[in-house]
Simulated scan of single mutants.
Amino acid sequence: MTGPVVGLQVTAYATLRLDAMQTRRYYDDMAGLYCDMSVSGIGWRALGVEAAADIRLSYRWSLALAASVQHCAYVRDPLVTVLSDVDNTVVDMRAVSRMGGCVPGGVPGATACAELAYFGPKGWGLRLSAGYVGGRYAEPSFLRRTDRIASQGGTSPELFDAFVRQERLDDALTLGASLFKSFYFDRSRLVVALMLRNLLGGDDMVYSAYEAQRVRRIAAGDQTLWQPHATRLTYALPRSFYITVSYRF
């Protein structure tokens, strides 16, 4: 094979889901109780396009590319019911949660990745990779967007906005590399690989995030103010090195 050979695949999709449900047990700061929460009527829509290409550059070199663009959002305001976990008394019944237009957490608006691979003589090989994700948001809280929390706690426009505004996460770029050696034994193969992840060494790259369910109680003179806790973040691993050994037979 002396010339490049290209394999291309493109997929478009549309998904609509209505009347999903969620349940959760949590501590309700405003009620001062452990509560059971039920969320009904959850609806979201996803539209997107994905594309992938495999390019054989030469006998020993290959390039793989992939990208996606999508829009995913909640399309309706679900209903939230909160009951005391102690005696099932009603804390909030079928309250409207302002979720319309929010983006589900962990669903990026755009992704792209590329991998360049070299397969050398005597079982040696090298891979270089790059990845990008953008348009990500923290997982929104159903509870925070009800009147009992957002309106009662958001006593000023700034506080109300803090309860209902969805935080957008920074875009992320990763680079990686791996060096491997294959040993062949009749019908079996031993592969030893050295893998390097996050070559840029960024230690503040957010992997996932969700809005805190609980709220802060702040005493200001004879008044009580409520504020949402900061978004809970999980960070990607910093620059990391791995050695793997695999045997196939």
Rank of each mutant, 00 (worst) to 15 (best):
P104W: 02
Q9I: 14
M205G: 06
T111G: 07
T23E: 09
S141D: 02
V86M: 09
V80G: 04
V82R: 01
R248T: 15
E139G: 01
E50Q: 12
L18I: 12
R144P: 05
G153Q: 00
S40P: 11
A64G: 11
S182M: 11
L225F: 03
Y118Q: 10
A130W: 05
T174N: 10
V164W: 01
R168Y: 00
A52H: 01
P121W: 10
Q227V: 03
V75M: 09
G123S: 09
S40G: 14
A66N: 11
D171T: 02
S188T: 13
S156P: 11
P4N: 12
A114C: 15
A209L: 05
R217G: 01
S188K: 08
R25K: 15
L225P: 00
P121A: 15
H229D: 05
R98K: 13
T244R: 09
T89W: 09
T231D: 02
G154Q: 01
A177H: 03
Y132N: 04
D87S: 10
N198Q: 05
Q70L: 06
R217A: 05
R216C: 09
Y34W: 14
W44N: 11
T81R: 06
L128P: 02
L116R: 02
L18P: 08
L8Y: 08
G100D: 13
V86D: 08
A117T: 08
C72L: 09
V107E: 09
D222I: 06
L65S: 07
W61S: 07
A12P: 02
